[in-house]
Design a protein around this nucleic acid. Structure first.
Length: 287
DNA sequence: CTGCACGCCTGCCCGC
DNA sequence: TGCGGGCAGGCGTGCA
């Protein structure tokens, strides 16, 4: 589910509740998610203080006072939820209706002094890792990532340079995390619509001017989505359990057959499949 | 090297 | 209602 805006929304929700706090009891209800949890994760987290909570691409990074960094990725359906309680009675102790233990609560990080964070992930495509903070630059999942789209390293000139060396479709290029980090299917579709570029265009045929427009569209749609708390289609929840609402602002994603919202465009939104993913676009105003 | 299909898992929605 | 099929926001692997 979650793309950059959803992960950033979760980060902003967790940050005030976690900074300066120490993990107490750590509950693991299974031995891993997409991959096994690292050796000794429970012991290495217990007693650790959270000094910083960062986001890189779609990864959340908790810098701990133990010199290690806890990494979490939400996969397609993962949630990190703040919960109340002391943790003494474990995951059954919740501010949730009727005391029912929700399915798919795989990890609970209880905090000293009360409250905690639960990792819930129905599809289990999410992951958690724990590694020495000094090794971040060489982490296998982080080292190849492209620039942050909202950072200084991402701009029209950079994008043009990368696109001009690629024979892939521009849609596939935007989903390539080595080119730019954090875009997923929704925001790739929305960005291309904003820029008026067809998802089928060959990357190397995108001009410098179009690249400038596309970079601006990417930044704009991501900023607006973050401001809206992300998009809640099915699974995304903020850390407090609330919904994002950027899904109401989609121009093309999931709107097949509907009118193109661009002023003066009489086209309608259509869907095509590229490398197995739906590309929603307007054939009239995206070329 | 690139680009693509596939698998991982469950839930949900649609049509019959 | 029940059931099968298709679909879903990600990402690493393996193959051509």
């Amino acid at each position: 589910m979650p793309e950059l805006p959803e992960v950033e929304t979760v980060r902003r929700g967790l940050e005030p509740a976690l900074l300066g706090r120490r993990f107490g009891r750590v509950e693991l209800r299974r031995s891993g998610l997409r991959w096994p949890f690292p050796r000794g994760m429970r012991r290495r987290l217990s007693g650790a203080r959270v000094d910083r909570l960062r986001r890189r691409s779609k990864y959340l990074l908790f810098d701990l006072d133990t010199g290690e960094t806890l990494m979490a990725h939400l996969g397609m359906s993962g949630r990190l939820l703040l919960v109340g309680g002391s943790g003494r009675r474990g995951l059954a102790e919740f501010h949730r209706p009727a005391g029912v233990l929700p399915a798919h609560d795989h990890v609970a990080l209880w905090l000293e002094g009360g409250g905690g964070v639960v990792f819930n992930d129905a599809r289990r495509f999410g992951m958690m890792d724990l590694f020495p903070s000094s090794g971040e630059a060489s982490h296998r999942l982080l080292r190849g990532l492209g620039p942050e789209p909202l950072g200084n390293g991402f701009h029209g000139g950079y994008l043009f340079g990368r696109l001009s060396r690629s024979g892939a479709s521009v849609k596939a290029a935007l989903l390539d995390q080595r080119l730019v980090a954090g875009l997923g299917n929704i925001y790739a579709c929305e960005s291309l619509w904003r820029a008026g570029i067809s998802p089928l265009r060959v990357s190397r045929d995108v001009s410098a001017g179009e690249s400038e427009g596309l970079a601006g569209a990417i930044r704009g749609v991501l900023r607006e989505a973050i401001d809206a708390g992300g998009s809640s289609l099915r699974d995304h929840r903020r850390a407090d359990g609330g919904l994002g609402y950027f899904q109401h602002s989609f121009s093309v994603y999931g709107r097949e057959g509907g009118p193109c919202p661009r002023p003066g465009c009489a086209g309608s939104v259509s869907r095509l499949v590229q490398s197995g993913r739906s590309s929603f676009h307007c054939p009239s105003c995206q070329s």
